[in-house]
Write a protein that binds this DNA or RNA. Structure first.
Length: 366
DNA sequence: TGTCCACGTCT
DNA sequence: AAGACGTGGAC
């Protein structure tokens, strides 16, 4: 077990400075000031891997439309997905609905109060459980996210890899030893906020405005730009995909990604693996029972995920029905497409072209 | 251009 | 333990 980071009296001073700074410098956010576990939960799930500025409009719309657990438990899946469209990591919102239903049916419609119990809920891990328990219920528990890992690594001057699970455990332990007797939620948020706006990830930290510079070993040693140390992530795989924007009688073909894990249950334009020529496409569509009347290449695009990169080439295809064209395609108007169907960002450039008109292609090879 | 954030959670 | 799962903005 790790020894204390600071002496007793120094800890009190550290807590005071951090809480005072947070009181004066915290950014405004729609969920700040709320102690409703539902609202904090929604905000924390949205904030997982996602920036505050991106989350704010989604959060407002979500709470407006689904103000409580009951509303979320009862909402239709496609409406829910539409509220989440573009936020990414769509399993987050599937888990939320499952948890809402569970709490309504098995837990009298209320959240448990302890981090340990919160962690048993789908989609709530150690960080989110700590955040909800400390912010809403004042539990004396740490909430260590990526910001806190970075702040703590610099504070202690640690050159250990913060991606390492053991190092994270150690940091959670250290944060616990720094927790004040009361005001735990604000203390946790203060540490996160310092990480977000002072002890920044991608640029040099703003050390001269940092409330805890006096305790910072990295600063003392001039290592604030070297720490934290992180092992490099695995390389992305690349996949070429040919996307088909097929029009028939003023309607366009879309398809639901029912069996896919990636972007599950979102809608997409029909597509095939590999880079296909217009000749190959015409042949393929013939097998699908469709006759190509017109074929125009579209501007290529890229979609970058954490672990994969898609190279997308698109074609506009005016088609005619030859025989029964099942293939679980859905034929929708532009208006329906925008209003009713959730599409991942990977396909949004094509959707935009479809709605606004197709740009003249600038691809060299057709 | 490319890399990082972004440990967050689940599997 | 390590890979899957999204997105967009900063630098």
């Amino acid at each position: 077990m790790e020894t204390r980071l600071f002496q007793e009296d120094k800890i009190t001073e550290f807590q005071r400075k951090l809480l005072q700074w947070y009181k004066n410098h915290q950014r405004k956010m729609p969920w700040r000031g709320s102690s409703s576990p539902y609202e904090i939960w929604v905000s924390e799930i949205m904030l997982q891997q996602t920036r505050v500025d991106t989350v704010i409009p989604y959060y407002k719309r979500f709470i407006d439309r689904l103000p409580n657990l009951k509303a979320l438990a009862e909402v239709e899946d496609h409406q829910l997905l539409k509220l989440w469209e573009g936020l990414g990591y769509y399993s987050r919102v599937r888990n939320m609905k499952e948890t809402a239903k569970f709490l309504m049916e098995k837990h009298a419609g209320a959240f448990p109060k302890r981090a340990k119990e919160l962690m048993e809920l789908k989609g709530i891990g150690e960080y989110t459980a700590g955040a909800i328990a400390s912010i809403c219920f004042g539990e004396r528990v740490a909430a260590v996210d990526g910001n806190v890992l970075r702040v703590m690594a610099r504070l202690t001057g640690s050159t250990m890899d913060i991606k390492d699970a053991k190092v994270k455990r150690e940091i959670i332990h250290q944060v616990k030893s720094l927790l004040p007797a009361v005001d735990i939620g604000n203390f946790n948020q203060a540490l996160i906020e310092v990480g977000a706006i002072i002890c920044k990830p991608n640029s040099k930290p703003d050390c001269f405005n940092c409330p805890i510079i006096a305790e910072c070993i990295a600063y003392e040693k001039g290592l604030q730009n070297e720490i934290p140390i992180k092992s490099p992530r695995a390389e992305k795989k690349q996949q070429e995909i040919t996307v088909l924007l097929m029009e028939h009688k003023g309607r366009f073909a879309i398809k639901k990604r029912t069996h896919s894990k990636l972007l599950k249950d979102l809608w997409e334009f029909p597509n095939i693996e590999g880079k296909k020529s217009s000749v190959e496409l015409t042949k393929l569509l013939k097998e699908w029972g469709l006759k190509v009347i017109e074929c125009q290449p579209l501007k290529n695009s890229k979609a970058i995920f954490t672990h994969i990169q898609w190279i997308l080439s698109g074609y506009y295809l005016a088609v005619e029905e030859v025989q029964d064209m099942e293939r679980d395609l859905m034929w929708v108007t532009k208006e329906e497409l925008l209003r009713e169907y959730s599409m991942a960002s990977a396909f949004k450039e094509f959707r935009r072209q479809l709605i606004d008109g197709f740009d003249p292609t600038t691809n060299e090879s057709i």
